[in-house]
């Protein structure tokens, strides 16, 4: 018995679980408390609300209704329509953003004159809150006074003013363009950092071996950049599908719901129509779907990387 204990102790070499130390709690508390109060508690409350029929109203009774909200959600064509728009938006923005940001990052990685200035300017959209970005682009898209219409007119590309944000067909693409613009900085900067980590010797060696620019990119740069690409596209996707402020300011989900992203849909359910419980279940559903999509994506990317 003693021998057994001894071996066990020897096996579990870095024994930390030496009983509970109250002092540790004191050390962790300052970090843990805000997380519990500000993140975990609201999250749990939200999940709870999703199982109730909570509605806006003074002294409104709240009943636990089990999965009733989720059953309703499955049959809610409006919500799935909005979810489809959300996916088009999130995938569209993420892919375009990535393509544009990679190009920009490769450019900024070159030894160009005035590179420091270009790199700084790249950050500008990042410094603007989404609401300001939205307002600014609303002016750009303005049918009568917008700079976009007047520019296109001067170039004789259009003959009459286009109402970008009120057109059933153009509103979503127009909003996606703004989304790409607004999210460019963090994607570019992350990719640029990744590019700078690509060992210069490898590229040089490849050049000596006679590899073309494209071959160098494929064989040297891209494999080194892969983990960064996986991380930033996954993050971008999460940010984009949860986007709210930008689109709320640009179109409020219009025209006729053509740009009603899932988050806008949930917001309207809660704050416009007063169905708090249902809106909470929508939030939970969005989280679940995003998790599933990401799990598949990350698994594939990581597998390929091995």
């Amino acid at each position: 018995m003693t021998a057994a204990t001894a071996t066990l102790a020897a096996n579990a070499k870095p024994v930390r679980r030496k009983g509970f130390e109250p002092a540790v709690l004191g050390l962790v508390a300052p970090a843990l408390l805000p997380v519990l109060v500000l993140s975990v508690a609201p999250l749990l409350y939200g999940i709870y609300l999703g199982f109730t029929d909570a509605r806006a109203g003074r002294n409104m009774p709240v009943h636990v209704t089990g999965f009733a909200n989720y059953v309703e959600l499955f049959g809610d064509a409006d919500f799935w329509g909005s979810f489809r728009i959300g996916l088009v938006w999130a995938v569209g923005v993420t892919v375009l953003q990535f393509a544009a940001a990679l190009g920009l990052a490769l450019l900024l990685n070159q030894k160009l004159r005035g590179r420091w200035l270009a790199r700084t300017l790249t950050l500008v959209p990042w410094a603007m809150p989404p609401v300001v970005v939205g307002l600014m682009w609303r002016l750009v898209y303005h049918p009568q006074a917008g700079i976009l219409n007047s520019t296109l007119k001067d170039l004789h590309l259009i003959s009459s003013n286009v109402d970008w944000l009120n057109s059933f067909t153009l509103a979503l693409p127009a909003v996606i363009a703004v989304g790409v613009w607004a999210g460019m900085p963090q994607t570019t900067i992350t990719l640029l950092a990744g590019l700078q980590a690509v060992p210069g010797e490898l590229t040089e060696a490849a050049t000596v071996d006679g590899a073309s620019t494209w071959q160098r990119f494929r064989a040297v740069t891209w494999p080194a950049l892969r983990p960064v690409v996986t991380a930033i596209t996954a993050l971008d996707f999460i940010w984009n599908i949860n986007q709210f402020g930008l689109v709320y300011v640009l179109t409020q989900g219009g025209p006729g719901g053509q740009t009603r992203l899932p988050m806008l849909f949930a917001y309207e359910e809660a704050f416009r129509y007063g169905f708090f419980g249902y809106a909470a279940s929508l939030g939970v559903a969005i989280v679940l779907v995003v998790l599933v999509v990401l799990a598949f994506y990350l698994r594939r990317m990581l597998k390929e990387a091995v």
Binding site: P129, V131, W239, N242, Q243, F244, G245
Partner: peptide, 10 residues
């Protein structure tokens, strides 16, 4: 990050 700001609207 920036996407969080609108949560502050309420």
């Amino acid at each position: 990050m920036q996407r969080r700001t609108l949560l502050a609207v309420v």
